[in-house]
């Protein structure tokens, strides 16, 4: 559904001097700086997949999403989305994709959301009966009923986001680009959006590419993640392997009845307990070993927090 090969994006940005002298000087000369936002990025996504797109701020996530949606022209490289070259912004292509940006909104600010829906139905040239059915389905799933006739500016952030999603999905796109769809939302609204995205993916079979800074979003929604930093690919694969490879393994903590020894096999003592960080394959053997060597009072095995895994990954090589 999405095929990206050796994608590059280089921006030139003007440098502007500081202070009085700098601002006068920038009248006459324009120094420019080249910024490489995306570097040699390649990946492919199958129809119906839900993929998390991760990276630190300024990693090039939004730039990539925009290139895939046809809003930005890459400096070089190929990309095919739903069988189209996005750059042409062919109406047939635009009918098959959608972009939701958590920080920006397309809803008509002064009107109730129902008017934006009506406008989008007309602009996308949707069949009235079918579009109504989709609209009703979205209204039900997102529980928009009570919001439909209130002006958008009177809605809360979470309510607005739900309406954004509905407005973006009326034309039943095959590809969903979601850029930080839960940003700024409270925990409950995040959960609603998350559940909705999963549900919609199941129902419509649409492909989802999602960026988020909330790891809970990724953990709940994305079996597969693509990680970029500094514009370059860092990791592409199952979410669970990510923790395995970069998390430094699972944390096994053993509390003993008596005082714990300084070291024991793979374990060392931390805060009075025996602690070991191990790849999952070795966990069973280590636990078995500990159980046989000491009197165990309590035992726990912790997954490394996803945030830690990522910050390790981001720090590496950058």
């Amino acid at each position: 559904m999405i095929q990206v090969t050796a994608l590059n994006k280089v921006y030139t940005v003007p440098k502007r001097g500081e202070g009085l002298w700098g601002s006068i000087r920038s009248l006459f000369s324009r120094e420019v700086e080249e910024v490489r936002a995306v570097a040699d990025l390649s990946f492919s996504i199958q129809a119906g997949e839900r993929v998390g797109f991760l990276g630190p701020n300024g990693a090039g996530k939004t730039t990539t999403l925009k290139m895939l949606a046809g809003l930005l022209v890459p400096s070089s490289g190929e990309r095919v989305v739903a069988g189209f070259d996005p750059s042409k912004r062919d109406p047939a292509f635009l009918r098959r994709i959608t972009l939701v940006m958590g920080q920006k909104q397309q809803l008509l600010w002064d009107l109730p959301p129902i008017e934006t829906f009506a406008l989008n139905r007309a602009l996308f040239g949707l069949d009235e009966a079918e579009a109504r059915r989709t609209q009703d389905e979205l209204i039900e799933l997102l529980e928009l009923g009570p919001l439909l006739n209130r002006p958008v500016r009177n809605l809360s952030l979470g309510e607005r986001m739900k309406c954004e999603l509905a407005a973006a999905l009326l034309h039943r796109p095959d590809v969903l680009f979601l850029d930080e769809p839960t940003i700024g939302l409270d925990v409950r609204a995040q959960g609603t959006v998350r559940r909705f995205i999963a549900e919609w993916n199941e129902r419509s079979g649409a492909t989802v590419l999602l960026t988020s800074h909330y790891m809970a979003d990724i953990a709940a929604l994305c079996p597969r993640v693509i990680v970029i930093a500094g514009g370059a690919l860092r990791y592409d694969g199952p979410l669970k392997d990510l923790a395995e490879r970069y998390g430094g393994g699972r944390k096994v903590v053993v509390r003993t009845r008596d005082e714990a020894p300084e070291t024991l096999g793979p374990f060392t003592r931390e805060d009075g307990a025996l602690v070991a960080r191990l790849p999952s394959a070795e966990v069973a053997a280590a636990v078995d070993f500990a159980l046989r060597q000491v009197a165990v009072a309590d035992l726990s095995i912790e997954e490394p927090p996803l945030e830690d895994v990522l910050s390790k990954l981001f720090a590496e090589r950058s």
Partner: peptide, 18 residues
């Protein structure tokens, strides 16, 4: 200025007309 022009470009209708 706000970056919402992207939404205009994503509508399957001539952007100038829009």
């Amino acid at each position: 200025r706000q970056g919402t022009f992207d939404f205009v470009l994503l509508k399957p209708i001539d952007a100038q007309l829009y």
